[in-house]
Design a protein around this nucleic acid. Structure first.
Lengths: 64, 64
DNA sequence: CCCCGATGTCAAGCGAGCTTTACATGGGCA
DNA sequence: TGCCCATGTAAAGCTCGCTTGACATCGGGG
């Protein structure tokens, strides 16, 4: 399950810290998601996608 | 965070057990999600939405 | 050179997601 | 009546999602 969070975030000109604050999570959480260390919870995934104006499926890609 | 899983499942004529088997999770997991006892993980949410031919956001509604 | 913002990462801790096993209820059908 | 399917629920256990706090590195600007 990889994702486009880093590309979308940098394209938006935001730091991991800034994005975390906008979404109500810590910068470590954003970092872990970008690195693929774990998947976000469903509510966080929806907030992330909505923040970038994309569908969840467009931001998070299942590898199967 | 409520969802339309029960409606979609019954419309598809499937039992909780049958749906769980199709998606690779237990029937208790399907039951808990339908009852809103907890949210599915992101990969399971994507599998559920895809199974019913919907977008994740169409099946799972954030209450905010 | 020193400072600072941005990133990477670790450890400890807590609650959520999911499992298996098990027991209870209600409905339909022989 | 008895059986079976579907559903609801509970306990115990494991891993994951996320937190705070901390420390390390790198690059740029004074």
């Amino acid at each position: 399950m990889d994702n486009d969070v880093r590309e979308l975030r940098t394209a938006a000109g935001l730091s991991q810290q800034a994005l975390g604050e906008r979404l109500g999570v810590s910068r470590q959480t954003i970092n872990a998601i970008e690195q693929g260390r774990y998947d976000p919870s469903l509510p966080l995934a929806i907030r992330l996608a909505r923040f970038f104006g994309r569908a969840v499926e467009e931001v998070f890609h299942c590898d199967d």
